[in-house]
Design a protein around this nucleic acid. Structure first.
Lengths: 171, 171
DNA sequence: GTCAATGCAAACATTTTGCAACTCT
DNA sequence: AGAGTTGCAAAATGTTTGCATTGAC
């Protein structure tokens, strides 16, 4: 996610979402509106759980199930996109009004670098045509080491693997 | 996964795995050997659970935990690769001795088409250099519709989303 | 008023962990 | 012998579901 959306952008997204819902007989509830706004206002990649927490910390009363039920709607109508950095976590980012981009993920520090997806999209078209495939979208991600990490430790040929970190509890 | 490995290939992979383990003071147990062989002999993408089941059906006594603990080792030493088709499932494939490839995934029927990754790797190098990033690998996947699916139903503009399928139980 | 959505808790699937017994080196 | 490994069952995670109540249109 590069930048938080402007108020106008959010308004437009709300319109899009609303249309999407109406078209299939679904309702534009206050919870869905609140989720959309929270997501559009953010400039970060996020997980479902995080989103839930941040909304509750903002004083909003919202259930976990609602978050899990709403995210797919936003993905389907194209406002939000799923991204997968490491395993063990599904991340989301809002893409509405953003330039298409993909990500480079640093294996050592986890830094995310976004880059323009135009070249990738172009290649995807060529490859799809070559296999008589009808491309609709792609997922692309470059894994490696960012410059600062290489500078900090140029000797470590083998990248450091993310240590298994559990969240709380256990002896 | 394009093809099952030949006996020689498996032997070589065993050697590689053994070295990898020895280098870090780990042991080449019969369970690890059995897992490696099963994986190398397969020509399919697979999930952890599937692997466990197929090994047990072959009469091998092996614990679930062992499978989950061994897969990361095989991934780290480069014999196995994780691939992620849809959400809700981590798939693996053995890549040792296989040509580098990426996947196209049909949204409607789930068919997987493999294609040579050379062009993608080339692009990845260019992109990485442009951002002073040190690329080590990539994940690429083209999502869309395969030819048969388009032929079967050319009218459906909106791709059919995988219906939420739970495995057994519930009301 | 009707039909869909919400929140909660319970159910689930998947993966991880502790631990005692066991095995590779 | 000793350090790492195994299997099992229990724990933990992340996500989904049933259901009664609430709310949007």
């Amino acid at each position: 996610m590069a930048k938080a959306a402007t108020a106008e952008m959010i308004a437009t997204a709300e319109h899009v979402f609303r249309e999407y819902l109406r078209d299939r007989g679904l309702k534009y509830t206050r919870e869905r509106q609140a989720l959309l706004r929270a997501i559009m206002s953010s400039d970060q990649h996020f997980e479902a759980e995080q989103l839930l927490l941040s909304m509750r910390q903002s004083g909003l009363r919202i259930g976990k199930a609602t978050v899990y039920r709403t995210l797919p709607l936003l993905v389907n109508c194209g406002i939000v996109k799923q991204v997968q950095f490491s395993n063990n976590a599904v991340h989301y980012e809002h893409t509405y009004g953003q330039d298409p981009h993909d990500h480079m993920v640093c294996r050592r520090c986890g830094r995310i670098i976004e880059f323009d997806a135009a070249d990738v999209a172009r290649l995807r078209t060529i490859l799809a045509a070559r296999h008589r495939f009808h491309a609709l979208s792609h997922r692309f991600q470059i894994v490696g080491l960012c410059e600062p990490c290489v500078q900090a430790c140029p000797v470590a040929t083998r990248p450091i693997l993310v240590p298994p970190v559990s969240k709380g509890r256990r002896k």
